[in-house]
Amino acid sequence: MGVGIRTAGEGDRELVTRLLDEAFQGDPVSRWIFPDAAHRGSTHPRLMGMFLDIVLAEGRVDVTEDGAACALWLSVPAAADGDHADEGDGPAQLRAAVDPDNERVELVGRLTDRAHPVGRAHEYLWLIAVTPDRQGEGLGTALMQPVLDRCDRTGLPAYLEASSARSRELYERLGFVFTGRTVDLPDGPPMWPMWREPQGEPEGESQDAPRGRPQS
């Protein structure tokens, strides 16, 4: 039986924020950002809500019809090396809005921005979440597959950062490949930047390896 998927809108903000919060409360990166469980319980939903607002404004949010899973996608345009290395101060603004005294909110944004490939247009899977009691049912794959199929048809790569070894294995099954350099959070868990070339590209199509953003 297929999984019904729809595009989320502003009216789904409470539903999707709650879903993101529940799915990522135990995630290694979320636990690193908010090591105190009580503080994480009260502040983590605010961070997820801010992430969601960015994608609602600039990208697309897919959600299953039953509200059990969601995926946040951004379409990243082609750019020359260095074009986005200094594009505003989003990580600092996010920290100020979510948890001003917590430098880790800002740092994780800066480190992932620095690792994000430049050069080729691609689809960026910012977050994907499945409610804890439905994990392992294939909902994440079902959410991703239509976008990956479209990438294959149009010759567009895709990118994400895996935040756990388990999720990395899932993405590898979908054709993503580790770019070769982890995002290392100080005294925290690694993140694995992963890139997926469109499957079945015509022979002769350029498949230059993505390049990380320059250190600055």
Rank of each mutant, 00 (worst) to 15 (best):
M144N: 04
A80E: 03
R120M: 06
G140M: 11
L170H: 01
R166C: 02
V108N: 04
R114A: 04
G9M: 15
I5T: 01
A68Y: 08
F24Q: 10
G140D: 05
P146M: 10
D83L: 04
E103V: 04
F51W: 03
P35N: 15
Q207F: 04
R95Q: 10
E169H: 10
G136D: 14
L174D: 13
V55G: 00
R114F: 05
L139W: 00
V108G: 05
L185W: 04
Q215L: 07
R173P: 02
M194G: 06
M48H: 08
D99P: 03
V29F: 11
I54R: 10
L125C: 02
P28T: 14
V183D: 09
R6C: 11
M194D: 15
R104M: 00
T182Q: 03
L15M: 12
E203W: 15
L52A: 05
R120T: 13
R173Y: 08
L47M: 15
A121F: 00
G2E: 13
G11A: 12
P117M: 10
E10I: 00
E14L: 07
E58V: 05
D21F: 07
G140L: 06
G26F: 13
G109A: 12
V118I: 05
L111Q: 11
T182S: 11
D89E: 08
A96F: 12
P210A: 02
G188E: 00
R46T: 11
M194E: 01
A92D: 14
L72D: 01
Q135R: 13
R110E: 13
D81I: 01
S75V: 05
E65H: 01
V183G: 10
P117Q: 06
P77D: 00
P186H: 12
T154G: 02
Q215A: 02
D89G: 14
G82F: 04
A85S: 12
G4C: 06
P100R: 02
A121D: 00
P157F: 11
V118P: 03
I33P: 10
V76F: 07
A121V: 00
I54L: 14
L20M: 15
D36K: 02
V183P: 09
E203I: 10
Q135V: 01
V147H: 11
P117C: 05
F51L: 14
A8R: 05
R181A: 00
A71G: 05
R173E: 07
A38K: 12
A79M: 07
S167K: 12
G200W: 12
D133V: 09
P117V: 09
P77E: 00
G212M: 02
L111W: 10
L185K: 08
V108E: 12
R166E: 02
G41S: 12
L20K: 03
G119W: 13
P91H: 05
V76N: 05
L52C: 04
P146W: 15
G136S: 02
R153T: 05
P190W: 11
V105P: 08
S164P: 04
D89C: 14
W32A: 01
